[in-house]
Design a protein around this nucleic acid. Structure first.
Lengths: 117, 117
DNA sequence: ATACAATATCGTAATATTGCAATTTACTAA
DNA sequence: TTAGTAAATTGCAATATTACGATATTGTAT
């Protein structure tokens, strides 16, 4: 038949709840090892990072900048200009949201204790 | 200059740790609202689901099947043949891994109480 | 065998992601 | 003003994802 859907390839965001989309957006942002590494680095240094993120990663400057942008868009990190560099740090609220979400799931699973499979 | 890198567009998995890749894989699988909806449905019904997942989602059967495959590949769900249907349920270990990961992050952030930004 | 069901796979179109060189932007320092 | 540094943006190539119709597969009835 070969009819062509104009929306082919686009995620059907409007068919799901805001909460589902919100969790998916956060998870998607974490869904790349470079971005996991960035998050872990920001966590490790125990303060904001001004400048040396690029040197920490095995990727080109343009690529790192792109990953930082995605983390920022998802709301996982915040960045503020600090002289000649940019100061990045983790957004507690976004990470708390994920922590809550998975804790809730874990609790539910604990209660039901896999009745099958 | 326009030189062509044969590996352009491929994630540089080998440049990151196993743990980082593992978390990224799990997060990526959750990074789509349809897959979040599937996980929440499996959680809600409080037992394995044999058959009615397709009817629960606003997507074509082929699309749902594809999403289930991705969740399975990531290790988030398990499926076993149950007569004429397939019985799906959540994998506790994978979800516990995520729960642990974010709990750890939350604890670290709690301690440091954002010294900047 | 035949018909029916549920699920998987194939093929394909549209869009998104990943990565980097080159360039631009924005600030610092001399 | 000029040079230097840090980060963002642009442009593009390669690959991945999303979605669905069509078809194949697998198991259950009759």
């Amino acid at each position: 038949m070969q009819f062509t859907n104009i929306r082919m390839g686009i995620t059907k965001t409007d068919q799901f709840t805001n909460k589902q989309n919100s969790i998916a957006t956060l998870a998607k942002a974490i869904g790349h090892p470079a971005r996991v590494a960035i998050i872990e680095y920001l966590l490790k240094v125990d303060s904001c990072i001004c400048g040396d993120i690029v040197n920490e990663l095995p990727l080109a400057q343009a690529t790192v900048s792109q990953h930082l942008k995605e983390l920022k868009n998802a709301g996982l990190i915040k960045g503020s200009i600090e002289g000649n560099a940019i100061c990045y740090c983790l957004d507690e609220k976004a990470l708390a949201k994920l922590q809550n979400y998975f804790e809730n799931i874990a609790k539910h699973l604990e209660k039901k204790k896999s009745k099958c499979c």
